[in-house]
């Protein structure tokens, strides 16, 4: 546990100086605040920008931040030195993952408070976001672990990020895309958030999110085994 806390604190200090990661955490919350207050259209659905940016935030911020952090640690050799210093891979992932998770939850809180919700709805919003962020973290960990360099992580992460963060937005405007998008966790999170006034979580939604998580966990384990057996 001490290792997890030390890694968490180190990550906190490092991110303050790492603009590339820092911007991932604050870009969508700030955009939500701006768009929500600046754009007033009569027929716009309630909390339109909040829902739109919340789904994009889930598909983008945790994934890019965690994959970038892990890939950088691999490229700079800091991860190897940490593992040689009696830090277990699980402790490293917990320290880094929990840091990104909490940062993203803080960003989600900003997005949530930009919307018009009751206290009960806010709790549901945050719980739903935390599940989505966790799924994204699994995928980010898989990409970061698989990549030998930050460049490789970026080239893998960008199409994946675009797929998961833009599908929920595009599904608002196209039914065919919506039919495909519903199999992604980010779309399911958007749907859950859009029904926040009348929360009922269907078995299908739970299965889709769980299947996504299982797939990402499988990808992570495969990447991890590959890293262990390779000259990483």
């Amino acid at each position: 546990m001490k290792h997890v806390i030390a890694i968490f604190k180190k990550q906190l200090k490092d991110t303050v100086k790492n603009k590339a990661v820092l911007i991932q955490f604050i870009m969508f919350p700030v955009m939500t605040l701006i768009m929500n207050n600046a754009i007033q259209i009569n027929d716009l659905p309630k909390n339109f920008f909040v829902l739109l940016f919340a789904a994009m935030y889930i598909g983008m911020a945790p994934l890019t931040a965690l994959s970038a952090i892990i890939a950088e640690e691999k490229e700079q050799n800091t991860l190897r030195v940490l593992l040689m210093s009696n830090v277990r891979p699980t402790a490293y992932l917990l320290g880094t993952g929990s840091y990104v998770w909490i940062c993203c939850l803080l960003g989600s809180a900003v997005i949530c408070f930009a919307g018009s919700y009751t206290p009960k709805e806010r709790i549901f919003f945050m719980l739903t976001m935390s599940v989505g962020i966790f799924a994204s973290l699994l995928l980010g960990a898989a990409i970061g672990t698989y990549s030998k360099t930050q460049m490789m992580a970026t080239s893998l992460m960008v199409p994946v990020m675009i797929f998961f963060s833009f599908l929920p937005m595009l599904s608002l405007f196209n039914n065919t895309i919506a039919k495909v998008a519903k199999f992604t966790y980010s779309e399911q999170i958007r749907l859950a958030l859009s029904e926040i006034g009348d929360p009922h979580i269907s078995g299908e939604s739970v299965c889709i999110v769980a299947a996504n998580m299982l797939l990402f966990a499988g990808l992570f384990l495969t990447a991890y085994k590959k890293t262990l057996s390779a000259d990483a």
Partner: peptide, 24 residues
């Protein structure tokens, strides 16, 4: 261990690098 390409946290200060490992 001292590795060939350092394995140091480039953005952290000299002090913070060692303080982090002291915690580790």
């Amino acid at each position: 261990a001292m590795m060939d390409n350092f394995g140091l946290y480039e953005r952290l200060s000299v002090y913070d690098n060692l303080a982090f490992y002291a915690e580790i």
